[in-house]
């Protein structure tokens, strides 16, 4: 029983961290991994999703629908941002860093001015379960399931749907796709919008468990970048194993050496991975380097 208890505890911790990494990095993986745009406003799309979700939920919408609304709104905002700003910067990836940072500043401070410095939370649903004398939040288990569902859904979308094939073609060889009659501008917009919507989804999913403040996106951003970078360009080959490995490292270090080493370990890992595997895990797994 004690063994089962500690095994479950470890699995739960691992799954919890894994889910956090996967969910928070999915949007970034699409935008950075596929489009090559470093989106420093990733955290603000997450915040947008969380705020919309919380408002919708308090307005009486059931939580799953509220989360969906949050994701859709964030996606719509993302498409507008792409049209107005990002579209002009595809040839200048370093400039897109500055532009998205500018957007992030405006969003954070704008929300602070308009909506105030905090927003009331909505509370975590579903309660807890008891395993071997310790209690665990059920909602966290739902989040783990969501993470797996998200990976599966994205895989289907990008590899087994017409949209996915065209999106990948557009991003890999834009001129060729354009010559073949693809409306590349629209595809870029949709892909960026998808990335923003995934960020919004992350915000919606974590909104019930977190403090709602305009700067809440910042707590996601380091972890998501680390995961995407360790994963490398191909999000499906890379991001899932990257999240798994990082979750193992982080959960392990946190369990045995405390939160400080969990934080630092994550950052050191990314430095080492970039040094040893410049193409990230996916580059290595596919036997190629950039």
């Amino acid at each position: 029983m004690a063994l089962f208890q500690s095994v479950f505890a470890m699995l739960y911790q691992f799954g919890d961290t894994f889910a956090f990494l996967v969910i928070s990095c999915a949007g970034l993986a699409v935008i950075f991994g596929m489009m090559g745009v470093i989106n420093l406003a990733h955290g603000e799309f997450i915040m947008c999703g969380a705020y919309v979700t919380a408002s919708a939920a308090r307005g009486g919408l059931p939580l799953p629908l509220a989360i969906l609304t949050g994701a859709l709104v964030a996606g719509a905002v993302g498409m507008v941002v792409e049209r107005l700003v990002i579209r002009h910067l595809y040839q200048r990836p370093l400039d897109s860093i500055i532009a998205t940072w500018g957007i992030s500043l405006i969003a954070t401070q704008g929300v602070l001015i308009v909506l105030g410095s905090t927003m009331q939370g909505i509370g975590t649903p579903l309660g807890s379960i008891d395993v071997g004398g310790r209690s665990y939040s059920l909602y966290r288990l739902v989040l783990m399931a969501c993470a797996l569902g998200l990976l599966g859904g994205l895989y289907l979308l990008f590899y087994h749907s017409r949209f996915g094939v065209i999106a990948r073609a557009t991003i890999q060889k834009p001129q060729m796709a354009y010559a073949l009659g693809v409306n590349t501008g629209r595809m870029y917009g949709l892909t960026f919008g998808l990335g923003a919507a995934l960020a919004g989804l992350a915000g919606g999913l974590y909104a019930p468990t977190m403090t709602m403040v305009p700067t809440m996106g910042a707590t996601f951003i380091v972890e998501s970048f680390v995961t995407v970078v360790v994963g490398g360009a191909d999000i499906f080959v890379g991001a899932a194993p990257a999240a798994a490995i990082l979750a193992l490292i982080k959960a392990g270090l946190t369990a045995w050496y405390g939160q400080l080493f969990g934080q630092i370990g994550l950052l050191v890992t990314v430095i080492l991975v970039i040094r040893i595997l410049p193409g990230g895990l996916s580059g290595w797994l596919k036997g190629t380097t950039r």
Partner: peptide, 15 residues
């Protein structure tokens, strides 16, 4: 603000 998330998470885990 970030650390304040503890209360929500501890409460949902029924500490």
């Amino acid at each position: 603000a970030a650390q304040a998330s503890y209360y929500e998470q501890a409460s949902s885990a029924s500490v």
